[in-house]
């Protein structure tokens, strides 16, 4: 067992868990934050995407122990009194169908908007499509997801 200390969505948590526990298992099973999904479980689909110390990572390819000492933000932690602009944009532009990949898409969208802004680069439609390489959606064909991220980028 290993002691894992994390700040998750602004709340400090401490748990003793098996050393082999993945961050996504820690979030879902220990903290019951089930908004972060397991899709492929082979680190390709991005449904498990969360922010660790301000960077988008796949929580199915990260041990909880590796993350210990860090700060995690999940889909449950981005809205205030109102939806986050990225969530609202996915709603307004119908950027989902079944919704399974959506938490990862939203977290990926926020990450790319922040990174491009910090680097002073324009987040074009082509850039959004390239940035979504690690997020797979099997329903939408991506058009409305790209539209949602573009719209949210203008609001963030």
């Amino acid at each position: 067992m290993t002691e894992v200390n994390l700040t998750v969505n602004g709340r400090r948590v401490r748990r003793d868990v098996p050393d082999a526990m993945l961050l996504v298992e820690f979030l879902r099973e220990e903290l019951r934050l089930t908004g972060t999904h397991v899709g492929c479980d082979t680190s390709q689909c991005g449904a498990c995407l969360v922010h660790l110390d301000g960077r988008a990572v796949k929580s199915c390819a990260t041990l909880a122990a590796q993350a210990s000492g860090g700060t995690v933000v999940t889909i449950e932690g981005i809205a205030g009194d109102e939806l986050h602009p990225m969530q609202k944009a996915f709603n307004d532009h119908h950027g989902l169908q079944c919704g399974y990949c959506t938490p990862g898409m939203v977290m990926s969208g926020i990450d790319m908007v922040k990174r491009y802004r910090a680097a002073g680069r324009e987040l074009t439609e082509a850039a959004i499509r390239a940035e979504l390489e690690g997020n797979i959606c099997r329903c939408t064909g991506y058009h409305n997801i790209v539209r949602s991220i573009r719209a949210a980028a203008a609001e963030m």
Partner: peptide, 9 residues
């Protein structure tokens, strides 16, 4: 290499 999240780690 890989995708943005993989490149972060």
């Amino acid at each position: 290499i890989g995708d943005p999240a993989v490149r972060h780690r």
